[in-house]
């Protein structure tokens, strides 16, 4: 079979690049949905928080001598493979409830279903890495940490 001529290779490549660019441009408006402060990192790299800073206090009560404000806080963790949003309930400096409110990773949600219970058990965002779910684990941990950061007393 004859090789494709260079002229056709260039023409086809240009056409493909044009379609790609149109798609890229059309999806740029979706960028606003991506957490602004997200730091994309490989799980193998040094730890870096990708908490988005978009967590919001749903219900907080003031307390004087405690580390966290009581209430329910929403935190988000993201990386290049998607986003996880969690709501974390805090009462008397203890995490009393953790729920995954939105799971938008490109992996199965089954990877992280047991993690809310683990957070309740260890009372920390530092859940153990699950083999085969590194990116989801990292996003979940970041989401919980983000919520805890929101709950921290200034």
């Amino acid at each position: 079979m004859a090789k494709m001529k260079k002229k056709w290779v260039v023409l086809c490549s240009t056409a493909i690049a044009a379609v790609y660019t149109a798609g890229y441009w059309a999806t740029e408006s979706d960028k606003s949905n991506i957490p602004v402060n997200a730091v994309y990192s490989s799980p193998s790299a040094t730890s870096s928080t990708s908490g988005s800073g978009t967590a919001q206090v749903l219900d907080s009560q003031s307390q004087v001598s405690s580390k966290y404000n009581d209430g329910t806080y929403v935190g988000m963790g993201s990386n290049r493979r998607g986003t996880i949003q969690v709501s974390v309930a805090i009462e008397n400096d203890r995490i009393t409830d953790v729920e995954i409110s939105d799971f938008a990773m490109h992996y199965s949600i089954d990877d992280v279903v047991g993690m809310p219970d683990e957070v309740l058990q260890i009372q920390s965002a530092n859940v153990e890495n699950v083999s085969g779910a590194t990116y989801s684990t990292r996003a979940f941990s970041d989401a919980v940490q983000d919520a805890l950061d929101q709950a921290l007393r200034a």
């Binding site: 493909i16 379609v19 790609y20 149109a22 798609g23 059309a26 999806t27 979706d30 960028k31």
Partner: peptide, 17 residues
């Protein structure tokens, strides 16, 4: 890429990613 462009146009699937 054409189908991804169509997904973006009709807001179906995750064309951004």
């Amino acid at each position: 890429f054409a189908m991804t462009l169509a997904m973006a146009y009709f807001h179906k699937g995750d064309a951004f990613d």
